[in-house]
Computed example of a mutant assay.
Amino acid sequence: MNPGKVEASEDHPLLHCPVRDIASGAEGELMAVAHERHGGRLIRIAHIRSANGIAWSTAADNIGPVR
C-alpha cells in the first residue's frame, strides 16, 4: 500500500500501551493512530512498534489490548 496523506491523528485510549495486531498476531506498543487519505477514502491507521524496534501499521480496527 502506498503511504497516504495524514489528515489528523487520534488520541486513542490504547496509545503507548501494549497491543496485539489481530490480523498478524504480532504484539507491540501503539505509537499513533493517524487518519490517512488513501484513494479518496479516509482510513484510521494504527502505527505499532515491537520491543525489538520493528514498526508496522495496520487498520486501527485490527488492534486490541494485550492481556
Rank of each mutant, 00 (worst) to 15 (best):
M1I: 15
M1S: 14
M1C: 14
M1D: 09
M1A: 13
N2Q: 10
N2V: 09
P3N: 15
P3L: 15
P3Y: 15
P3H: 15
P3T: 14
G4H: 01
G4Y: 00
K5M: 06
V6Y: 14
A8K: 11
A8L: 12
A8Q: 13
A8F: 04
S9F: 11
D11M: 10
D11H: 06
H12Y: 07
H12D: 08
P13Y: 02
P13V: 04
L14C: 09
L15T: 15
H16A: 13
H16Q: 08
P18L: 11
V19P: 01
R20T: 12
R20A: 10
D21K: 07
D21I: 11
D21A: 06
I22K: 08
A23R: 04
A26M: 03
G28E: 02
G28R: 02
G28W: 00
L30K: 10
L30A: 13
L30C: 14
A32W: 05
A32C: 12
A32S: 09
A34C: 08
A34T: 07
H35L: 13
E36S: 01
E36A: 03
E36K: 02
E36N: 03
R37N: 12
H38W: 03
G39D: 10
G39C: 07
G39S: 06
G39Y: 00
R41P: 07
L42N: 03
L42S: 03
L42Q: 05
I43W: 02
R44E: 08
I45L: 08
A46I: 10
A46R: 01
A46M: 06
I48P: 02
I48G: 05
R49L: 11
S50F: 00
S50C: 06
A51N: 12
A51W: 13
G53N: 11
I54F: 13
A55R: 11
A55L: 10
W56F: 09
S57F: 02
T58V: 10
T58E: 00
A60K: 01
A60F: 00
D61W: 07
D61F: 08
D61R: 13
D61K: 09
D61C: 13
N62Q: 14
N62F: 08
G64S: 14
G64H: 08
V66L: 15
V66T: 14
V66F: 14
